[in-house]
Design a protein around this nucleic acid. Structure first.
Length: 823
RNA sequence: GGGCAAGUGGCGGAAUGGUAUACGCGGUAGUCUCAAAAACUACUAGCCGCAAGGCUGUGUGGGUUCGAUUCCCUCCUUGCCCACCA
């Protein structure tokens, strides 16, 4: 009796027992800890580190981590020294807002979240190198974030400027342009307002050209490359100066369509434009308009859409190409942030200008033939200055003096040459990218390591005095009014100038979270060394990151910032490359019941319960089986049962059978090699779903065999190991003879093409492209069309279609299909 | 308004010019059982048919091709990203 009981214990699949057991052993044996100094074939396999929301990791995070881990495990088995570190992006508004919500101090909350996250991250069975972990809120980490700020400042890349900036009234802080989505705060969704504040910026615009040009050479998801190009937004055009009548001042405008200069019938200034403000001093109506537009949120401006507003300044500018007087208006459809904050309005050929001209009854002048007219002789001058809509297509220039007849946009270059010759305008390239607003009026971030001295202006903290510790205070909640909570802590603010020793004030803003995450992958290599930002020889060995996986939502923010920071490191002479990620793939989004998982919908799935019920291996396989990893999938509860069945079948088959001594058959050999090939290629391409499908097919094949050889068992376990690390390790150790080696450090199986040839090949027979029969034919015969044709014609089914018909053509695709074209 | 994806059984998906629906879920029937669950076996795109077999079928309409889910054009729908960017 006791024997039976014991037998049951042995044969029952119990992930609760084997998973923690192996996780512990792997950690003890350090199988995922490469020697960072001596590794021969370094492979840096990185997943974007998570920000620990305190509810814990949801299954979407696990989806991404598992996908990244499978790739890492695959590379490890291929003989690479894989470095797969993990950490937490725990500083920043998102974590602080959660602390606000639960009414706990962010520091205290961070500890709780950290513990919870690390517990979950252990449970999913990834091959993390836990000895290299980091947290961005650790003073040992943010010390170097501050150090980096200082390096940028010294290089002239960090500067202060008073500017009209995005301000979130709910989060009570300024935001970077990238963090404003359609006029709303990226974090809380509140409508963003404009505020004039003095802020710290990073000069990312100096790198616009490099950031753009390098994109081409990157092995990245194409979608993300497009998003970056679009965000950097290069446009070619010209700067043109317009004199203001009876005044010394002039208005500079940027246009991509200098060819329409003769069609400029008025000018528009942004309300924030200094010239507008100058005008407002003397013109009450303009002043009122500017005031009104500043209190409106971006959202309101956008929502109004077509209904543009503006005010006539009463001033006139001189169009430099024809010396015509044109009125100057102020309107908020022109924004200060792009170009020069002023435009020449060409209503005939710009949709927005057209709408504005219609509303305020401003003149419209056609200078580009519309398409139908353009096909006629260009000397014919259509005088349609009352068009129904703006024409923006390509055509020829008219009504523009010497320029008449030039094709646009092809010959815009000639127009610019003309402008340059006449010293009216200048060729110029503009970027949509703007400088990175780095300061935040919040508590939970690295204090910006700067001191303001009355005599010496802004001075960086001496490097030996780093880190500037974030003071432990009770009153940490955001204040609003453009100041961080740190500003009210006198002991923090009051300090001495590092330059002259006189009394000075500390900067009280903290830096943006995206600075924390812009360089963390450098730090991972050297977390054991507190004396330097990183060890140069290690960074040289491991970076750039070999494979970076993360969410497409970081297409512009994180990925652009970290590219910029890496370029700065290169320019500082710290490293010898300038692109941080050699290869980047965006994973898909895991949805549930057709909708994005979100707290408000209440459809967030937490992995814990599933790991408890089915084990991490089942959940990993299930998540990866939902669909292509780069496309995401729909999580539904029913499906996981099916995957659990598969895992149990694997367990049952291999715990019951003993290794057969029978030699492996040719057919078995063929199926095995076919599977190795398929799984290898699929993992390489992140096609985990089809890799798993072919493993299932292989299982189905093996389970129908009378006996299974040792080689076959080993092969399927090896192929399955990256997906289901625990069960494969357990079964592998049961079968193995002596060595103590983990399955995860075993080499990946090779396939041999010689085994892939089939004896019998099935060929489809078509008549006029329609399938009528299939034909099994021996491998040797498929080369010869004559033989195949002859055999095909013998088929009864085919005869029926060929009698009384004339064969016009026979198409044969070797080993695939033969098609009779008949009439 | 601009850009990028995608549309295939009841469902998730497979097939990137050559046998459409692999693999899995769900469903139906059966085996085992006192019974149920589990497990296992078989079937499972639709229509006609007892069957053999035939017809239809990858959002819509066209095109290229001996052959199109795949390539090209039109339209429709959905998702994602960006957006008064001059």
């Amino acid at each position: 009796m006791p024997k039976t009981k014991r037998e049951n214990q042995i044969t029952k699949y119990n992930p609760q027992e084997i998973e923690p057991k192996w996780q512990k052993k792997w950690e003890e044996n350090k199988i995922y800890h490469p020697d960072l100094d001596k590794a021969n074939r370094p492979f840096y396999n990185l997943m974007m580190f998570p920000y620990p929301s305190a509810e814990g990791m949801h299954v979407g995070n696990m989806y991404a981590f598992t996908g990244s881990d499978i790739y890492g495990r695959f590379k490890r088995m291929q003989g690479f020294d894989v470095f797969e570190p993990i950490g937490l992006d725990g500083f920043g508004i998102h974590s602080e807002n959660y602390a606000l919500k639960v009414g706990r101090h962010p520091k205290e909350q961070a500890k709780i979240s950290e513990e919870n996250f690390y517990r979950q991250l252990h449970a999913i069975g990834n091959g993390f190198d836990w000895s290299a972990k980091l947290e961005t809120y650790d003073p040992q980490y943010y010390k170097w974030t501050q150090w980096i700020f200082i390096q940028l400042f010294k290089k002239g890349l960090a500067y202060r400027r008073k500017a009209s900036v995005n301000f979130c009234p709910s989060d009570k802080t300024v935001l970077a342009d990238e963090q404003v989505i359609a006029g709303k705060c990226e974090r809380c969704g509140s409508e963003v307002v404009k505020k004039d504040l003095e802020q710290w910026f990073f000069k990312i615009t100096d790198y616009a050209e490099r950031l753009l040009n390098n994109i081409e050479s990157l092995d990245w998801t194409e979608k993300v490359k497009i998003a970056q190009r679009q965000w950097i937004g290069r446009s070619e055009g010209a700067i043109v100066k317009f004199k203001i009548q009876n005044s010394k001042s002039q208005i500079e405008i940027f246009t991509t369509r200098p060819d329409t200069l003769f069609g400029a019938t008025f000018m528009v200034l942004a309300p924030e434009n200094p010239i507008s403000k100058e005008i407002a001093k003397k013109n009450k109506k303009v002043e009122e308009y500017i005031q009104k537009s500043q209190t409106r949120t971006e959202q309101e401006r956008i929502a109004e859409g077509k209904d543009k507003t503006g005010i006539d300044t009463g001033l006139f500018a001189i169009n430099p190409v024809n010396n015509k007087e044109i009125p100057v208006w102020v309107a908020d459809y022109v924004v200060m942030g792009y170009g020069t904050g002023a435009i020449m309005a060409v209503p005939a050929h710009d949709k927005r200008d057209f709408e504005f001209a219609k509303k305020y009854k401003l003149p419209i002048k056609t200078v580009i033939l519309s398409k139908s007219e353009g096909s006629e002789d260009s000397s014919a001058k259509p005088q349609n200055d009352n068009p129904k809509e703006a024409y923006v297509g390509e055509s020829k220039i008219v009504n523009s003096g010497e320029w008449n007849g030039l094709a646009v946009p092809k010959e815009i270059g000639k127009v610019i040459d003309w402008l340059e010759r006449k010293k009216i305008g200048k060729r110029q390239v503009h970027y949509h990218l703007r400088d990175w607003l780095i300061s935040r009026q919040r508590y939970w971030g690295p204090p910006i390591p700067m001191i303001c001295c009355e005599k010496c202006d802004w001075q960086p903290i001496a490097e030996k005095d780093l880190p500037v510790l974030l003071p432990d205070v009770k009153d940490w909640k955001p204040k609003g009014g453009g100041e961080s909570p740190l500003a009210s802590i006198e002991s923090f603010v009051k300090t001495k100038c590092p330059s002259c020793g006189g009394s000075a004030k500390r900067e009280t803003d903290v830096s943006d979270t995206f600075l924390d995450s812009a360089w963390y992958f450098f730090r991972y290599t050297s977390t054991d060394d507190k004396t330097c930002v990183w060890r140069p020889e290690r960074v040289k060995k491991w970076l750039p990151v070999s494979m970076y996986i993360g969410g497409a939502e970081h297409s512009v923010l994180h990925l652009l910032y970290s590219r910029f920071i890496t370029m700065v490191f290169k320019d500082l002479g710290l490293i010898f490359f300038e692109e941080p990620y050699a290869k980047f793939r965006a994973h898909g989004l895991l949805i549930r019941e057709g909708a994005k998982m979100s707290k408000s919908r209440g459809n967030v799935v937490v992995p814990d319960e599933y790991i408890k019920k089915f084990g991490a291996d089942t959940l990993r396989l299930y998540l990866m089986f939902l669909g292509p990893f780069t496309q995401g999938g729909d999580f539904y509860d029913m499906g996981i049962e099916g995957m659990h069945r598969f895992v149990k079948r694997i367990w049952n088959l291999f715990t019951r059978i003993s290794n057969s001594k029978f030699p492996i058959s040719n057919e078995s050999q063929r199926v095995m090699h076919k599977t190795i090939k398929k799984v290898t290629e699929d993992i390489q391409n992140l096609r985990y779903n089809t890799a798993i499908a072919s493993l299932m097919e292989y299982y189905n094949f093996l389970s129908k065999q009378k006996s299974v050889s040792k080689e076959e068992i080993k092969t399927i376990l090896l192929l399955l190991a990256p997906f289901a690390p625990h069960i494969t390790e357990e079964l592998y150790q049961r079968f193995k003879n002596k060595s103590n080696k983990s399955i995860h450090t075993h080499s990946w199986p090779d396939y041999d093409l010689r085994y892939l040839e089939e004896k019998e090949v099935t060929i489809a027979i078509q008549v006029n492209g329609k399938l009528r029969d299939t034909l099994s034919i021996s491998f040797e015969k498929i080369e010869d069309q004559q033989i195949v044709e002859k055999i095909a014609k013998k088929s009864q089914k085919i005869k029926k279609y060929l009698t009384n018909r004339k064969i016009k053509k026979v198409v044969y695709v070797k080993g695939r299909v033969i098609n009779f074209v008949v009439i």
